[in-house]
Simulated scan of single mutants.
Amino acid sequence: MYSAPVNHLPDPERQAAFYDGVTVKRGIAWLIDVVLIAIATAIVSAVTILGLFFIPMIYLMIGFLYRWVTIAGGSATWGMRVMAIELRNAHGERLGAGLAFMHVLAYSVAMSLMLVQIGSVILMFVDERGRGLGDMLLGTVMLNRRG
């Protein structure tokens, strides 16, 4: 017997407040995170002196770790927290370390392939839940923070 998967996420039609403005907030949160990662990269690069020769690699490593640790620790990066949004899994729960890692990995892959990232951003604007490609693959969704 076949049974459809249960989705515990808010309904975008009946509970639209969970999704209102999330795509724009997500973009602003991304900008905040980029600035924070750039500042951390500048500090690490300057302190290590040799790091000045490896700024792009340091930026990538700090960015990956920053996103993974903050999402695993509170289901949102600091930029997302400022914008009062958070990631949730298909059951409406906060992301654990494993799913946070997979989400950041999907983001990193999309960012390394411009057409994939453009497609993902377009999906965020046209999907009823504002999900990007990584969200669709992993069953995650960005919501306005509850409470």
Rank of each mutant, 00 (worst) to 15 (best):
E93S: 12
G147H: 09
S45M: 00
N7F: 12
M111V: 09
I43Q: 07
I37S: 14
G132A: 14
A110W: 03
G73N: 10
P10Y: 07
V116H: 11
W78Q: 02
V141P: 06
I28H: 07
P5V: 08
V121H: 02
V109L: 15
M57H: 05
M57K: 01
M136R: 15
A72N: 06
R94M: 13
G63L: 06
G27Q: 05
V34F: 11
V47P: 09
L115K: 03
G147V: 07
M114P: 06
M80W: 01
L115N: 11
Y19H: 06
E93P: 01
E86K: 14
M83C: 06
R129W: 07
T23F: 10
L105D: 04
V126T: 12
D33I: 03
R88E: 03
I122Y: 12
L113P: 10
I122M: 14
A76G: 06
L50M: 10
G79I: 01
A16L: 00
G139F: 05
N144C: 06
A106K: 00
E128D: 14
Y66V: 02
I32Y: 13
R129Q: 14
I71R: 09
Y19K: 04
M124I: 00
S3Y: 01
A84H: 13
E13A: 13
Y2D: 08
G27K: 01
F18P: 00
A100F: 10
D11I: 00
R131T: 08
G79T: 03
F53N: 07
L99S: 02
R14T: 15
S108W: 13
S45C: 00
L143S: 05
V126Y: 05
V22Y: 01
E13V: 12
D127M: 03
I37D: 12
R81F: 04
G98V: 02
F54R: 10
S112A: 14
H8S: 15
N144E: 10
W30I: 01
I55E: 04
I39S: 06
L50N: 08
I71L: 11
A42K: 06
I71C: 08
A76M: 06
M114T: 09
Y19R: 04
L99M: 10
L123F: 09
F125Y: 14
V24S: 11
P56H: 11
N144G: 08
H91T: 11
D127P: 06
L36D: 02
G147P: 04
G51E: 01
T140C: 09
I62A: 04
V35N: 02
L9C: 04
